[in-house]
Each structure stands twice: as structure tokens, then as C-alpha cells.
């Protein structure tokens, strides 16, 4: 993947289109899929629910307008990552279709929506937070074992099934690294960025662990630290303050406090790895995933998404 990524970075747009045509399904997506409902719009494309005429199944489609993508090689990288990995905590890739200047990426549909809906609308118990952290960590540890950093861990990129299934999505900004290789390009979402990313130092896999810590704060507070600030000021505060202050810290259990402490160490060497966190006592209090279902339904009801 690292070699492919380096080759992709040096390819011209025409070569990238050629490579996309080679790896994409030749079917016409407009004919094969019937658009049902838009789910959302992100930086890289629009996501909607569609019916696959081949088997009548409902799928999630990400429609990426290639003309708007300055770094098209990232798209190739995303498809290579999607096609290459299969894990119970990663949103499964089904197929990709090229239609003129639009790329349609078909993925499995999780009808519970994103974790963002839950964290912003309902209150989660520590046991439920621990369950989501465990499932997300399993995905992160798997990616890291394959030499891939996600770089954009946040509640928006964690999808839920109605049965409480938890899966990580959006691999468009992944980086493939060999061993302890480091990266420097600032990638991610400001409020979830690790200090070493913000200060343009070289960073590695543990940026995903920091972002998981920020996501845990989302599950406590409903939003990440500094969300009321502008992105630029948030970056300044991350660099200047380092570890964010967590409101109601004293209400959290000692295990949860220690878990957050290990995620949010500014010193990367002091920060835990994904594998180390999977053995943390806090995850032992994780509740069953099905206990997330009432939260998902409540959030969907509040947001009129049911």
C-alpha cells in the first residue's frame, strides 16, 4: 500500500482516471442504483442511500466529484484501502463505479446513522462509552497492524447499526506507513487533531489514539473541546494548551479518567498505543452493544431521521 500510495502521488490526473477505470466496475451506476435519500455531505463527497437493482439491497453510496478533488491520488488510496481490508469494525466496501467525472463508492449501509447524532442528542452511560471505544479501538488497531493511519477519527466517521454495531468509515485520508515511518502533512479535522499534527511535527499512528480520546469527550460532553471557537483558534489552543480540560472530570470513574489520561498525553511516547488501550480496565465495564439501540432510536426521533 505504501508503494502504491507513493506511485499514485506522482501520477497525472489522466493516469489516475485510467487507473480508476481499471479498478472500477464497468456498470453504469445511474442505471444500477436507484437513489432513495441523501444522508449527508462531507468534504470529499455526498453520501446517500440507494437500492441496488441487482439484488434489491439497500447500500450507502458516496458520490465523489473528481473535478473538485485537488488530490485525486487520495481517492485511489481510499479505494485501495477499502478493497484491501475486511474487518467487522470497518464499513465494508462493496464496489466502485466511474461515471464521467463522478466516482460512486458503494458501501454497506448502517441504518443507525453516525455516532454524532447520538452524542449530540442523548446522554451515554460510561459502559456504553466503553463499548464504543472498544469497537473503535479494534478498528484502529487493525488498521495500524496493516501499516495504515486513519487520521480522521471522530464521531462523524463512526457509523452505527440499529443492533448497536459500531464501524469506522471514511478512509479517504488514510496514510500508509512502513514501521515507524512518520508523516507531516496536516490532515484531519481541527478539533480532533493531535498536538503533533497541529504543530507540524512528524507524526505517526498515535494520532488516532488522541482523536479517540477527543471522541470520548464528545460522548461525555456532546462536542469536542473548543467547538465554540473558530477552527484556527482551536488549533492554537490545542498547540498552546495541549491536553484539554474535561468538564465534570471528577464525576468520571477512576478507570475512565486513566483511559482518557492515556489517550490524551501530549508526549507521544507517553501516549498509549491502540493495542495497549484494548487491554485497559476501563473497557471491562463495557455494556452490551444492544444497549445502544434505544439511544440511536431516541436520537433519530429527535432529529426526525427515523
Amino acid at each position: 500500500l505504501r508503494k502504491k500510495e507513493m506511485m499514485n502521488a506522482m501520477m497525472s490526473d489522466e493516469e489516475i482516471y485510467e487507473e480508476l477505470r481499471r479498478i472500477c466496475n464497468p456498470d453504469d451506476p445511474h442505471v444500477r442504483f436507484e437513489r432513495v435519500k441523501q444522508l449527508g455531505a462531507g468534504a470529499s463527497g455526498v453520501v446517500f442511500i440507494a437500492i441496488d437493482s441487482k439484488d434489491g439491497s439497500r447500500v450507502a453510496i458516496k458520490d465523489i466529484d473528481l473535478t473538485k478533488q485537488s488530490k485525486k491520488d487520495l481517492i485511489l488510496n481510499e479505494i485501495n484501502v477499502l478493497k484491501g481490508f475486511n474487518h467487522k469494525n470497518l464499513v465494508n466496501f462493496l464496489d466502485a463505479f466511474l461515471s464521467y467525472d463522478h466516482l460512486w463508492v458503494a458501501m454497506e449501509l448502517l441504518d443507525g446513522g453516525s455516532l454524532t447524532d447520538v452524542v449530540t442528542e442523548v446522554v451515554m452511560k460510561e459502559g456504553q462509552i466503553a463499548a464504543v471505544c472498544r469497537e473503535t479501538l479494534l478498528a484502529i488497531a487493525f488498521l495500524h497492524s496493516k501499516g495504515t493511519i486513519h487520521r480522521d477519527i471522530k464521531s462523524d466517521n463512526v457509523l452505527l447499526g440499529m443492533d448497536g454495531t459500531v464501524k469506522v468509515t471514511d478512509f479517504g485520508f488514510c496514510a500508509n506507513i512502513v514501521g515507524d515511518e512518520k508523516r507531516q502533512t496536516m490532515v484531519g479535522t481541527p478539533y480532533w487533531m493531535a498536538p503533533e499534527v497541529v504543530t507540524r511535527k512528524q507524526y505517526g499512528k498515535k494520532v488516532d489514539v488522541w482523536s479517540l480520546g477527543i471522541m470520548a469527550i464528545e460522548m461525555i460532553e456532546g462536542e469536542p473541546p473548543y467547538m465554540k471557537e473558530t477552527p484556527l483558534r482551536a488549533l492554537y489552543l490545542i498547540a498552546a494548551v495541549g491536553r484539554p480540560k474535561i468538564p465534570r472530570w471528577e464525576n468520571l470513574s477512576p478507570d475512565f479518567q486513566d483511559f482518557l489520561d492515556k489517550c490524551l498525553q501530549v508526549d507521544v511516547d507517553m501516549r498509549a498505543t491502540a493495542d495497549e488501550l484494548l487491554a485497559h480496565p476501563f473497557l471491562k465495564c463495557a455494556m452490551e452493544l444492544r444497549t445502544l439501540t434505544p439511544l440511536i432510536k431516541a436520537a433519530q426521533k429527535i432529529l426526525h431521521k427515523s
Partner: peptide, 19 residues
């Protein structure tokens, strides 16, 4: 306010326009 909030959650690659 909703659109501002949504923009805040966008992913950035390299130097965003506001830097």
C-alpha cells in the same frame, strides 16, 4: 449556525483556506 457548525466538522488536508 447549522452550516457553520457543519463546516467546522469538515476534514482538512494540508493548508485549509482559513490558515
Amino acid at each position: 449556525a447549522h452550516s457553520t457548525l457543519r463546516r467546522k466538522r469538515y476534514t482538512v488536508v494540508g493548508n485549509p483556506y482559513w490558515m
